[in-house]
Design a protein around this nucleic acid. Structure first.
Lengths: 341, 341
DNA sequence: TTGTAGGCGTTATCAG
DNA sequence: CTGATAACGCCTACAA
């Protein structure tokens, strides 16, 4: 039970050579004779030697660990991005430490402190919706730890970023709704400070403008979170307006589903009386009745690219501007919850 | 840029005392004078000293890292359990390393090898559906690393386990369907070797028996995975049977949703012509049309308990039987996709 | 009360 | 080609 773990020393003793020789042999250094290499490797295999990563890290100052900071992992959205991270980073022997801020600034700060303590080599982060200061990001960046921001922008903090053209996604969705005959498009917007909220709201406003539809703040309700429950009350508020909206563009699919629920309860027909469009294209969305129209985002690609950019930074000597800013284009998927043009 | 990290040595030099003194002062050892303690602590604060966890771990042989191995994190189910882990373990300063096997035995083995390399203190695992041998579990366990299995049982491998009474959940669901008047209840079962598949299937069979309904293998289709797409073909197969099923009990909500989709396409009424019951109670499920009846599991509690049991093992000196086996009871939620009794 | 020295497992430098 | 030796940062006998 609890068999002792083999170290270089054990191999050295067994073979009556020095530890240094063993180390070099296992690293396949040119200066070691083929003979001893063979002997050492054989013994290593026999004793089932595994290098102690802790010791290596202590020396290298590299832990091969990447911190991933997301608001939550429950949503298909972040889970898929994390898959992208994993698929890029694991083959290169990086380990991921996934942390959830739960949309809390305080928790996010603590997470960053912790990631500093465990000495991650780099960080992939999508800021919480409560985060407006980014000193905790800057702090690590100044220590030479590369930080790549994805999906949600860190306004005022410069670093590599992989984002989505939320403005465009929203604009297209709302423009479509108007083209399809809707006159009073309402918006279930996200939490106030979020970059994605902001950009989608801008897209919404500009789509109205383009179509000469007067902009009315009453038709915008902000949700506090991204779960179904968060959408119910705001959706009800919208439906109490007079005149009633004939379309709702929601910040994400969960909220759109809440809205659909509310609208159905009022015995209004979707999409004839009220059209609904969401954002994210969750796998469930096409199975709702009616199937939810939504804005698809290339989640997996976002993960892949962000991870690759981080890798570049890990290999770079210094961490200097100019930083990259990559913007993916989302795509409007029209299903049955909105009218055909 | 990249300010040097403070070590004990730096503090010692600054204060002209030995490193040992500094170390002891920061640990608040009784043998150190109040005076020097104050000086050391002040300097530590001033230089923003953070102990190097790597060095500590190398010494202690404890990394304060827990490996979490799940098939995937996309589903609400595993994501919620992980929340439970986090809420128990983070306050005690454990870090989680979440790994996804993607239902692959090979990947799972690799993950375990990796977790051994990074020297996790313990492991929380829900085996992949392809896993039938558990040597990789045993391997770590023999090295003194506690392994707690949750949700899916590791048949033949003894350790602490936190499971759900899948048999009971399935039995109740199917019994209910029969009580509500269904005569030909079909089952969309899970991948073959999974413990949960097995137990739910047994529950299904026994519920038929209890009600004197002949058991017919044709009414059981196994899905290959747990996503929507995996359910479509099997559901279609079921609906081709003659006589057609008048109820479907599905291994999880996603599959149930596929089934609902298929049934609706055939212009059959749910629940009057075909009742459908799922498993898991995903947050979306109540928003489908009709709202999905399903078997709820106490996911968060599973996470909490499994983590607590792991903690106990981490504190224990040795890793010895008898192991605990905790079984949670699921709960049938009747919504609109099944008939009322 | 404090300092010295050895060790955790590895790698790199410098001799031989 | 190989062996000592000194780090990495921390902790803990054992001495003083």
């Amino acid at each position: 039970m609890e068999k002792k773990i083999t170290t270089l020393k054990d191999i050295a003793k067994e073979l009556k050579v020095s530890i240094a020789t063993v180390s070099r042999a296992l690293q396949n250094k040119a200066e070691i004779s083929v003979q001893t290499k063979r002997r050492v490797k054989a013994m290593a295999r026999k004793l089932n030697y595994q290098p102690n990563l802790l010791a290596q890290s202590l020396l290298n100052k590299r832990t091969n660990t990447i911190g991933v900071v997301v608001p939550e992992i429950k949503s298909h959205f972040f889970a898929s991005i994390i898959m992208g991270f994993k698929d890029v980073l694991r083959p290169l022997n990086y380990n991921l430490m996934v942390c959830q801020s739960e949309e809390s600034y305080k928790d996010e700060v603590k997470i960053f402190e912790n990631l500093l303590r465990v000495q991650v080599d780099g960080i992939l982060v999508s800021p919480s919706s409560a985060t407006t200061k980014f000193d905790h990001f800057l702090n690590l960046q100044k220590k030479g730890i590369p930080v790549v921001v994805f999906d949600r922008d860190s306004l005022g903090f410069e670093t590599d970023k992989v984002l989505v053209d939320d403005y465009m996604g929203a604009f297209q969705a709302v423009d479509y709704l108007i083209q399809s005959g809707c006159k009073r498009v309402a918006h279930l917007a996200g939490p106030h400070k979020l970059s994605t909220t902001k950009h989608r709201l801008e897209g919404y406003v500009d789509a109205l403008k383009k179509n000469n539809i007067p902009y009315d703040e009453a038709y915008i309700e902000h949700v506090k979170g991204f779960s179904h429950d968060d959408g119910l009350k705001p959706a009800k508020n919208l439906m109490k307006l007079n005149p009633q909206p004939d379309a709702i563009f929601a910040i994400n699919d969960c909220i759109a589903i809440s809205a659909m629920h509310v609208v159905k309860k009022l015995n209004l027909h979707i999409p004839d009386q009220v059209s609904i469009v969401g954002f994210d294209d969750e796998p469930h969305s096409k199975y709702f009745t009616p199937a939810l129209s939504t804005v698809w985002q290339p989640v997996y690609s976002i993960g892949i690219l962000a991870a690759k950019i981080l890798l570049k930074q890990l290999q770079a000597e210094t961490l200097e501007p100019p930083f990259r800013k990559e913007i993916f284009t989302p795509e409007l998927l029209i299903r049955a919850s909105s009218k055909k043009i």
